Computed example of a mutant assay.
Amino acid sequence: MLVRAANGASVTVRIVNECPWPCAPGQLDLSRQAFAKLADLSVGRLPISWSLLSPDLPGTIAIRYKTGSTTWWCGIQVIGHRNPVAALSVRTAGGWRRLPRTDYNYFLSTDGTGCGGTLRITDVYGERLTVAGIAVRPDVAQPTGVQFARR
């Protein structure tokens, strides 16, 4: 993410968690190091604008199944993605089924639908990647061979 202050200073940061309360939508809680590149720390808060960046990450996306995942219940995490992930769907006999995302960043299939099957990963720009052949192996990051395009 590229963060710009009104004074023209900017810094590129990686978002690693949610902004703690009392942050409002659109606000960021920057590290001390990142904030210091925009203004003196004594300022405390300052007006900013920000935009998403599409980093040039090495490698491809990986899939990790959550501890305890089986073919009857699974949590699926997408890692190493260039762009933010908007959705994860699994192929079923009736078509694609979108899985709900947890606040701990796993997509859950509580009835086992799609566990170990073909996945479709969609980024915030609408690009869809289809991945097959990822076995249910909990706690193992399995490379997919695909990556979102750089924007």
Rank of each mutant, 00 (worst) to 15 (best):
A6F: 13
A6H: 09
N7V: 04
T12F: 04
T12Q: 15
V16H: 10
C19Q: 10
P20D: 10
P22N: 09
P25R: 09
P25T: 05
G26R: 06
G26A: 09
D29M: 05
A34H: 08
A36M: 03
K37D: 11
D40R: 11
G44C: 01
G44K: 05
L46P: 10
L46N: 10
I48S: 03
W50V: 00
S54P: 04
P55G: 04
P55I: 08
I63Y: 04
K66E: 13
S69P: 08
T71C: 02
T71K: 09
W73P: 00
W73E: 14
I76K: 00
Q77S: 15
V78G: 04
I79G: 04
V85Y: 01
V85Q: 06
A86V: 03
A87C: 06
V90I: 13
T92M: 04
W96G: 07
R98G: 02
Y106L: 11
F107R: 03
D111Y: 00
G112K: 07
G114C: 10
G116M: 06
T118S: 11
I121E: 11
I121P: 01
G126I: 10
T130C: 08
T130L: 05
A132G: 09
I134R: 02
A135P: 10
V136N: 03
D139Y: 15
P143Q: 09
G145F: 07
Q147V: 10
